[in-house]
Amino acid sequence: MTEFFSMGGYASYIWPSYGITALAMIVLLLATLRGLRNSRRELDQLETVLQARRPRRNRKSRKAT
């Protein structure tokens, strides 16, 4: 096990490589998911407001159809 972590003496190069790569890929994914969640929430809010108003705004056109 110690042998595995020492990576033939190159541990200080190999583990940072894997660590930074994992970190960057996870951060990018999480940032994307967070942005997606926030945008969805904002969109929902806007659409709720829109929905509430639609009957008043579209009363004429709705009767026509």
């Binding site: 003496g9 190159y10 894997y18």
Partner: peptide, 14 residues
Amino acid sequence: QGATVRIMYLHVPA
């Protein structure tokens, strides 16, 4: 290159 070849498996795909 010894164990440093293991960096290749990240470096080349990246």
